[in-house]
């Protein structure tokens, strides 16, 4: 039976075509992350690898609303999805993860240090809390130069306990700088839950204590995230003042490759808890909405998935065929 009532606009007032595009992006992120894990296990990558599975809405429902490269993005080492959303090609990301000359950091950064300044992406940061003091300076510069641009700074719940974060919040609140903080509250910092790491788990209160207004958002729902980001960005562009979103979400996989699901959740989270959160999978949820709206029949969902896999496979093939960085690049770029 054909659907009669076909929705043309989403709750967030995004056209269905556009929304379908965002869905594709989230599928791409998921497939990309799965593939990085396999490639790491095959020995094609080294160092650390932190995946974004489950947190896709935090970037997909926000970064497309930015005016890159004028707006700036900072984030943590869990940065593959942020780079993808900023427009860094999957090929350049995969090549970076494999330490190739064609990588977005010329093979010098690896998974934790993806970067793409031409697209407004000022990089992933390996130091917990590290991006926050930097966001203060970026915000300062955006204001100083009289732009209407915003710096978006992603960081984790564990980072909220770093001293530098609070100094920076205080100064951002004091100087009234155009920074949007996205607290990726995936409930854990490695094996430490939020309740085991702070006496005040209401992160919004902490931002407010420094003069930064904020709110709590369900990061498992694309529309909620989109709307919160939209309001926050409009507010910052209008007032020039920072805003803080505590985005509740969950990482479906272990902290890093060393902590995969097979061992990780046994001693700091239960399998039951993980499965409860997986029921809120943001991709499944948006997919269900689109299907209900009549624009995502099963065949199309399958096609989108296959296309994502093809993009990832192409990135892998490109990376594997790319040369290592030339040895004389070792001493290049220590200074400008």
């Amino acid at each position: 039976m054909a659907k009669t009532a076909v929705k043309e606009k989403s709750p967030s007032d995004i056209g269905l075509d556009t929304l379908l595009g965002h869905y594709k992006t989230m599928v791409l992120i998921r497939r990309f992350e799965e593939s990085t894990y396999r490639k790491f296990r095959e020995g094609k990558m080294g160092g650390y690898l932190h995946r974004y599975d489950g947190q896709e809405a935090l970037v997909t429902a926000l970064i497309p609303q930015l005016e890159l490269p004028g707006d700036k993005i900072l984030c943590t080492y869990r940065d593959h999805a942020h780079a993808l959303l900023c427009g860094t090609s999957p090929r350049a990301i995969m090549a970076e993860l494999m330490g190739r000359a064609t990588g977005c950091a010329l093979g010098k950064g690896g998974s934790m240090h993806l970067i793409d300044p031409d697209n407004g992406f000022l990089g992933g940061d390996g130091i917990v809390g590290g991006p926050v003091p930097i966001s203060l300076g970026v915000g300062w510069a955006l204001k100083y130069k009289n732009t209407k641009n915003v710096c978006v700074c992603y960081f984790g719940d564990g980072a909220m306990n770093q001293g530098g974060v609070h100094e920076s919040f205080n100064m951002v609140g004091l100087y009234k700088l155009p920074v949007l903080y996205i607290l990726e509250n995936n409930q854990y910092a490695m094996g430490t839950s939020v309740s085991r790491s702070t006496g005040q788990p209401d992160f919004v209160k902490k931002a407010e204590a420094h003069g930064i207004a904020g709110e709590r958002v369900d990061g498992m729902d694309f529309f909620t995230m989109w709307d919160a980001a939209k309001r926050a960005l409009a507010r910052i562009r209008e007032t020039g003042e920072a805003y803080f979103l505590q985005v509740d979400c969950y990482r479906f996989v272990g902290h890093g490759v060393g902590d995969d699901n097979t061992q990780g959740w046994k001693f700091y989270r239960t399998e039951g808890e993980v499965h409860e959160w997986m029921k809120k999978d943001p991709i499944v949820k948006l997919g269900a909405y689109l299907k209900d709206a009549g624009v995502l029949p099963d065949e199309l969902a399958e096609k989108i998935d296959q296309e994502a896999i093809a993009v990832v496979d192409d990135a892998v093939a490109f990376a594997e065929a790319s040369p290592e960085p030339p040895l004389d690049s070792l001493y290049e770029n220590v200074y400008s």
């Binding site: 330490g99 190739r100 093979g107 010098k108 690896g110 290592e324 960085p325 040895l327 070792l330 220590v334």
Partner: peptide, 16 residues
């Protein structure tokens, strides 16, 4: 060690 921040790529790291 080579007087550079440690690079990621295996070959560069080996050289550093």
């Amino acid at each position: 060690g080579a007087d550079v921040p440690m690079p990621y790529a295996k070959n560069l790291e080996r050289a550093a």
